[in-house]
Nucleic acid binder design. Structure first.
Lengths: 127, 127
DNA sequence: TCCTTAGTTCAATGATCGTTGAACAAATGA
DNA sequence: TCATTTGTTCAACGATCATTGAACTAAGGA
């Protein structure tokens, strides 16, 4: 069950508004956030975003989101668990994430059909 | 007092979240919004942003903001009155603008010193 | 009329973006 | 052990970005 080396994430106070806005100013990444907002606390794997773009593209976009401090990425086995950095974002930019998510709800990204809301077949977090 | 040809602005319902986020994902443009938020209803001229960047750059950035639907730009004589599209943004993305402005308040942009809060020497709007 | 103010246009530049496919690595499972 | 699953790295590509300076336009004021 080896814990893998963590990926680099900015500290909470390193998260800047321009970086976050730039990270979210992309349809694919906004769609990722939309997906994630429906799985808060659980997270999703990169593989679950492949309806949005190619594997390589997803790696790229998830990195952008991680580097901007929007998501947390944790290696688990061969997968990466991606979660929203909800608390950090709320602390830094109160109300911001909620307003984004609300406005994202109806955003239709082509290629993504509102489908099975299965919480993923990732092992549930041991809390 | 010739009214000049208006510049192209997106309709309210043409304003999209990715476009707005992209427009705001830049330090200079975020600073412009910060300035504007302290003059809501009055607006500012491009010339009042020249502490942030060169004249040419300002033209470029203000265009970006206008095309994304973030600001309104109205020719008045030789100047351009730039105002936040507050109502449109609030309608499309409730809470969003306020959260941005709140988080922008403390953003220090180098070159901009918190200075004279003079409402500009632009003629006051005739309401 | 001529000058000044305010802002735009243009071409050029280097930088960053988002995508692709091929090759790779690492953990898992049979 | 060997194959599969999951995701990363890399080089390459065209596209867009943000900035510059020089030349320009349009409106006002002396």
């Amino acid at each position: 069950m080896s814990t893998q080396p963590p990926l680099p994430h900015p500290d909470t106070d390193q998260i800047t508004l321009p970086n976050v806005l730039t990270a979210l100013g992309d349809t694919t990444r906004l769609a990722i956030i939309g997906h994630l907002s429906r799985c808060e606390g659980i997270g999703m794997t990169c593989g679950q975003f492949t309806d949005l773009a190619s594997k390589t593209s997803i790696t790229y976009h998830v990195s952008k989101l991680r580097e901007a401090g929007v998501v947390n990425v944790t290696p688990e086995g061969t997968r990466r668990r991606v979660t929203l950095r909800r608390e950090d974002l709320d602390q830094r930019f109160p109300g911001f994430l909620d307003s984004i998510i609300a406005s994202t709800a109806d955003l239709h990204i082509d290629g993504f059909e509102e489908e099975t809301n299965e919480p993923a077949d990732l092992p549930r977090r041991d809390p």
